[in-house]
Amino acid sequence: MKEAKKYMNPYLGGVLLGLVLIAAFWVSGRGLGASGAVKSVVVAGVETIAPGHAETATFYTENKEGHGNPLKSWLVFEMLGVLVGGFLSGALAGRLKFKVEKGPNATNKIRLIFAVIGGIFFGFGAQLGRGCTSGSALTGMAVLSVGGFVTMAAIFGTAFALAYFARKLWL
């Protein structure tokens, strides 16, 4: 089987990512994001499945103001693009493969269980923190927002602090 191509030089990659971020500011004035798209899908799902509930529960009513269809949002289109762009890069580099990626001492089952748990925490935290690594930390830092620096420090600080306890998953 053909060997996959090497990854890009990280500093070049960083400059390119910075340029993408600038393009986003130039177009929309708001930078990049990711978790907001998940929220849009959740809100759209609840509004479709339980419209009565969506009309009374606080979060959905507060989020409804000024919005039409929650799926018609900038971040939803952007994240659809991420799926396409990731796939293209993976295809060009020969990295398309169904696979559970994990540390050498973790089983697939453990890895998948902790991936779901991690996702739950990250999804919840991204709502509480008004954005994830993309929308709050990276974009927030680029515009020098105090909240962006605080969130970035909290995410990375916590992950470093807990790394020892999660070592069986990764080392």
Binding site: A34, G90, L112, G118, G125, A154, T158, A159
Partner: peptide
């Protein structure tokens, strides 16, 4: 608070939201 909870999610899950979609697009089941 949100950042701390996201940090827990990061070290347990190994992704953040944007990177997880990117990884899923090339077939990563985790």
């Amino acid at each position: 608070g949100g950042g701390v909870i996201m940090g827990i999610g990061f070290i347990l899950g190994g992704y953040c939201p944007g990177t997880s979609f990117c990884a899923a697009s090339i077939g990563k089941l985790d």
